[in-house]
């Protein structure tokens, strides 16, 4: 059995196991730390910075930072909330996120996080960037208008499917997801049952012909806000 580690989040004592990240230990304890790129079962990418917490006075990403005995973590503070809101706001304007006709609406983690953090309208001017669509695959539709570059598809395809269908190309504002093929998604060996087809937090990787089958009211985040599934673990 791994060693137990005791630390605190917002003044509440939390017991975790050695080797866990702050986010993993918090999840087990039923404390929700907002996150976007992190997904259980995938190697943390640490790219979105939504999970930023203050550890012993210094900002750290909770999804990558291991816990240590006696550390104090601040999570639910007005400053961090504002910081998270700003990140979400920027993600919205950097892509073309039209929730009103996006098939992921109601099941989208970006949208759900915006609701949870109380973002009602955009704060920055939209970029309206020109983004690619790859519809060539018979079962999967790739719409980079909505990609937030979380890296989940890259990790899942590499580590779990062992295919390496997706990867990042370009840098800075030009960074984007590319497919590992001479031409298009249909030329890769991506299959509908792959993990990579299932991990996108937004409406960027979609299974074709299935959109809107779940009625409004029955979608993942229609009734309870994102994170409540974690908070419910708290006894």
């Amino acid at each position: 059995m791994s060693k137990q580690i005791t630390f605190s989040i917002d003044g509440v004592e939390v017991k975790g196991k050695e080797g866990q990240t702050i986010l993993q230990a918090a999840d087990e304890a039923g404390i929700y730390i907002p996150r976007l790129c992190y997904m259980e079962g995938l190697v943390p990418h640490g790219s979105c910075r939504v999970c930023t917490v203050i550890v012993n006075g210094k900002p750290q990403t909770a999804c990558t930072q291991p816990i240590a005995e006696g550390m104090t973590v601040e999570n639910d503070t007005p400053e961090l909330k504002e910081h998270r809101r700003n990140i979400i706001d920027m993600l919205f304007i950097e892509g073309n996120h039209f929730c009103m006709f996006c098939e992921k609406s109601g099941n989208c983690e970006l949208q759900a996080l915006a609701y949870r953090l109380g973002i009602l309208s955009p704060k920055f001017p939209y970029f309206f960037p020109k983004k690619d669509i790859d519809a060539t695959h018979p079962d999967i539709f790739l719409d980079l208008n909505r990609c937030i570059l979380c890296g989940r598809c890259v990790e899942a395809s590499k580590d779990i499917d062992r295919k390496g269908v997706f990867d990042f190309v370009g840098r800075g504002i030009n960074k984007k997801i590319a497919v590992n093929a001479e031409a298009n998604l249909k030329d890769t060996n991506l299959a509908i049952a792959d993990k990579a087809a299932d991990v996108c937090p937004v409406g960027s990787i979609n299974k074709k012909h299935t959109a809107f089958a779940t009625p409004i009211g029955k979608r993942l985040y229609d009734v309870k806000p994102i994170g409540s599934e974690i908070e419910e673990r708290k006894k």
Partner: peptide, 14 residues
């Protein structure tokens, strides 16, 4: 143009 057909009944309401 270019949007997937299943999106249209929702999109076109705009």
């Amino acid at each position: 143009q270019g949007r997937p057909y299943w999106e249209i009944p929702v999109l076109v309401q705009r």
